[in-house]
Design a protein around this nucleic acid. Sequence first.
DNA 1: ATGAAAGCGCTAACAC
DNA 2: GTGTTAGCGCTTTCAT
Lengths: 353, 353
Amino acid sequence: MGKHPANKKNSHPTLGQVARAAGVGTTTVSRVINGGDRVSPETLTKVRQVIEALGYRPNQAARVLKGDRTRTIGLIVPSIADPFFSSCAEAAQAVARANGSLLIVTSTQNELHNEIENVNVLLSHRVDGLIIAAGNSRSRSLRDLLLGLRAPVVAIDRPISDSGISSVLTDNFQGARAAVQHLIEHGRKRIACLTGEGSLYTIQERIRGYRAAIESAGLTPVIDTSIHDFSAARNAIEKLMSSEHPPDAFFTLKNSTTAHSFEVLQQLHIRVPSSIALVGFDDFELASTVRPSITVVQQPVEAIGHSAAELLFKQLFSGRGSTDGIAQRVILKNQLIRRSSCGCAASLRPSGT
Amino acid sequence: MGKHPANKKNSHPTLGQVARAAGVGTTTVSRVINGGDRVSPETLTKVRQVIEALGYRPNQAARVLKGDRTRTIGLIVPSIADPFFSSCAEAAQAVARANGSLLIVTSTQNELHNEIENVNVLLSHRVDGLIIAAGNSRSRSLRDLLLGLRAPVVAIDRPISDSGISSVLTDNFQGARAAVQHLIEHGRKRIACLTGEGSLYTIQERIRGYRAAIESAGLTPVIDTSIHDFSAARNAIEKLMSSEHPPDAFFTLKNSTTAHSFEVLQQLHIRVPSSIALVGFDDFELASTVRPSITVVQQPVEAIGHSAAELLFKQLFSGRGSTDGIAQRVILKNQLIRRSSCGCAASLRPSGT
DNA sequence: ATGAAAGCGCTAACAC
DNA sequence: GTGTTAGCGCTTTCAT
């Protein structure tokens, strides 16, 4: 089938083939593709031509085998499609690229089984380092697996318990506490906390923050961790609203819960913020566009991915493996974005920050 | 520093080390890690123990060097953080995993420079195949590069011009035309088309669809391709609204334009849909939650990633390289999701489809 | 400035 | 069943 001029050979051309075609030794070709030092200008030009003509590309696998780094790093997250993690990934990839590396992203759906398998697969590919957001951050087996690696590891969003593994987190506790305090300052007395996935580290920290604020104000905590989906939100809210002492505010601990709750409130024609104030954890697109715009605790998403990757490369370059010396814990600040749903006056140009 | 039991060796243990430790030959170990056929039960157990004890993991690079597939496929997209592409990626990864492969995702910001570099990097890593959403789908150099590969390539979202490269697309033309027709059926006469990134294939197809519907209804097309951001949207809309014949509907060609336009309309206190009807191309979270809920052309995002990966593996397994035989063009249908902003009655339970 | 040759870790003939 | 051995494509001494 008449095809294009390039390489119609069955397989990729090899360095040896280039060498032969150029009438030089393999060493010379190797030098050329690695910067071209110690090669005469003519040879260099000649070899480059041949490389071009043959469409030669060095085989990473062979280089790796010689013991070099693979120039790949792995990122293991619950879901690529989750905006939080995909933003992290984008930021991490930028750093990886700046360091001449490739980022390989895999997803686990928070299942321990997948987390362990992904670590193993990535390791088989000899990634130089690993960034991981582990759903099962307290799993003994995962921890031991990670601890046994020679490659550096950085945990994001959720730390690996009792491991001394570096981590980049946001201050979920403070963020939640500040949000609830804000609600309290608005005079809210019965603030209910709504969420799903109560087993995750992040959620638990946020609950701690909620409790701390509530209790230090002498109020009563009301926590519902059953909100997995829209109908769960609807049920929970209907029940709460028809209870003896209905809440006057909701603090929702994750994006989907915030969105679902907001929609339920609309459907039930409950006024926000007059009847119920609403503050969510985690910002999202359109949180500033809906009416009322929604006040949220905003996490520095890109910064997480960026810092984690930076930290990883720092460990990589500092020579040694995971747990020694530079293991660090980076805690990033969260920010309360005050929009309308908490009771603050609507800003004039609400398409927010 | 007292560490854990695993492998404290400087580097990874090798198959040879396992063989020696187990008192067997390398072939036997190789057999064990490849399924354990033709090995006696005792040896098998023994070897497995040693593997476990040493924390041995086969080195992919070495396998690759032997000519095997790398069991990795590459996905090149404009941005990982874009929900459209991250959903594609998630779907593609699921297929890859089902086929025992790893998906490597890289992003290009639609820059030709990055697209070419990413192809080369992925190729150096000897990915078995490539899925690409090329911003510069008409670039000659990119096309030639892709055509020269022995690895199968599947284009998504945007076809590679004049290349015969397989592609998985949605029917942008039909989708747009149906949306505009819907607006026309609602009695709208002056439907303005708003968008940015007019150079992209997808956008151009949508414009074609818009034109087709408008012209066959004897109306006048009004197209503004300058909407890069919020303030551009604001300017454009203000100008349109104060013109002699202000529009009575907007058809927005991409997510961000839809969201920005919606917000501008709110700020200007222009009633939707009574004064201006709105239909957007591409669904997004909360499109059903805002008030009025927004009617959109919904693309089968997961299906794109899924089909593309399936197609890629099909080509991979069918033995040969890119352009022969099974090169296909898969066109997926888009669906008009009728919510409120087009003028259709609000549905009772508007949290969408 | 350039080349010859020895592996890197693994698999696949081919013996035993 | 199991071991021996020859490379896969590359980098890297060590000569020249």
